[in-house]
Every structure is written in C-alpha cells, then in structure tokens.
Amino acid sequence: MKAIEVKKLVKQYARTHERAVDGISFSVKQGEFFAFLGPNGAGKTTTISILTTTLRKTAGQVLIAGHDLDHETKQIREKVGIIFQKPSLDKTLSAEQNIRFHACLYGMFMYRPAFWLMPSAYKKRVQELAEIVGLQNNLFQPINKLSGGMQRKLEIIRSLMHMPDILFLDEPTQGLDAVSRRALWNYINLVRREHGTTVFLTTHYIDEAEGADSMAIIDHGKIVFSGAPQKLKTKLNVKKLEDAYVELLG
C-alpha cells in the first residue's frame, strides 16, 4: 500500500509567472523512510504544506494514507504528524499546555484544566517524550522563557503525541544540539520499527537522508532525481550522499 501518492502536482502563487511546484509526481510506500531534498526555494516546503493540508494546490492529485486531499482533509489530518520548519506554538501558554491542547484537539484525551488532572496515559506519554528530547525540566515553563532549541524540542513532542501513521519532518533538527539530534533520530527509527510509521523528511543536513529507503530531489519546482540514495551515489561514483547531492545540483 502507498502511504503517499502524488501525481502531476502543481502550485502557482498569485501574481507570479513561475510555478513553485511544476507538475511533480512521486510515491512513498507504507513504512518507508522517504527524503525530499533540494535547495532553498526549490519547492520543498510548498510541497509538504500541500501534503499536510495547510496549503491549497493549483492542480494535480494527492492521496495520503488512501485519502483524497480534495475531499478528505479531516481524515488525512488524523493520520499525520507534522514538525514544521517555522514555529507554530502559542506563546501565551506553557510548554505542557501547548502539548495538552494539541492532544485534546486530536481527540486523544478529554481536556482537563491542569496537567495533574489529565489521565495517567497522557502524563506518561508527555514525560516519556520530554525525556527523549531533553525537555523534562522545562515542561511547565512559559514559551517565552524557552530558547529556540527548546521550542523546537517542544514541537517535536507535540507532533509525536498521537503516534501518527505518517510523520512529516520539515527541517526537524534545525536548532537542536548534537545530543538532542541523535536522540530524536534514535526515537524516530524506533517508532518506524515498532509501529511501521512512514517518515517524510526534508532537510539541509544531507547526512540525515543517508539511511532513506528512497528519495526525490527537487530543483526549481521540478523533480531532478528519484530513487534510492545508493542509486545516485553509484551514478555519480561518490561514497557520500552529500557529495552526490552537491554534484547533481552544482
């Protein structure tokens, strides 16, 4: 079964001559680790925003977990988790309150006005994820008291709360220290193994895509390569994916 199917996807913003996304097609198998790479302005974030229902497409067909993007956005949102490149936290709330509202909006738990009133399953999940990313000592601090890296960790916790079938990661480790970055990837790999979660990654840390099952590289709105990382390395006769990526786009 395909977790993601994209056919001839187009996005053209108003009052622009060039398409941000220009008729791209690709698919991602269920449980696969898929990397979607490209330089700044290539169309990566536009594509991921369309796939996660936060941006309207101009043309094309998109199926997410078997659901049609044009008619089943609610069902799609229930299946996906998202870590966006740009922060989307409510700065009037504490870290834990941001998590609690998100979990309740997804229908995971009935809302309670305080952390200690929430079910034990909620509290256990929050504390487990907080320990993984190193935020256990900051859960009850106001957002404006957290550093940029801490806020990034909070968004990671929030996106993983409901065990999504498909996890979209848009520059997930940007702003994280090396220890937190490794801990996050160890956890994502664990989730993939134990729950069959599909991972869709965009990143400028090309080494993070070395272990991808398949990938696509987009440039100026068009797919310029599609296939396994090893296929591109073999084609360009290099050992590291980053070297192949630079050579292809350079």
Rank of each mutant, 00 (worst) to 15 (best):
N237Q: 14
F109S: 00
R125S: 02
K2N: 14
H162Q: 05
T198M: 10
R182P: 00
F200V: 04
G148I: 06
N189V: 05
E194P: 10
R158H: 09
A95I: 00
R125P: 04
L160E: 08
N98M: 00
L135W: 02
Q12T: 13
T47V: 07
K79R: 14
K8Y: 11
D68A: 03
M118K: 07
P87H: 07
Y205W: 07
I218L: 09
L184G: 07
A65R: 01
R100G: 01
T202Q: 00
W185T: 02
M163W: 07
A244H: 06
E208Y: 08
G250R: 14
R112T: 04
A42Y: 06
F84L: 13
E242M: 05
H17E: 15
C104G: 04
P164V: 11
L190R: 13
L63D: 10
P164R: 00
L160H: 06
E96F: 07
T58W: 00
V6P: 12
F109C: 05
D22C: 11
I218M: 15
A59S: 15
Y122A: 04
I143A: 06
L201H: 06
P229K: 08
F168V: 02
E194N: 14
D177C: 02
V10Y: 11
R56K: 14
L93Y: 10
Q230K: 11
V133Q: 03
L184K: 06
A14S: 12
K239L: 09
V80A: 00
K145L: 12
K231T: 15
T46R: 00
Q97A: 10
R19G: 09
I24C: 11
Q97W: 05
K86H: 13
T53I: 09
S226V: 13
I82N: 01
P113I: 11
H220N: 13
L241S: 05
R15W: 01
Q61H: 11
G211C: 04
Q230G: 09
Q61P: 04
R77H: 08
L236G: 05
K231V: 13
D165V: 01
S214T: 14
L154A: 07
S226Q: 15
Y111P: 05
L146D: 04
K86V: 11
S180R: 06
F26K: 00
Q151L: 03
I76C: 04
K8Q: 15
A103R: 07
D68Q: 06
Y245L: 07
G221F: 09
K235W: 10
T92Y: 09
Q85A: 02
K11A: 08
D219Q: 14
Q136W: 04
L232A: 02
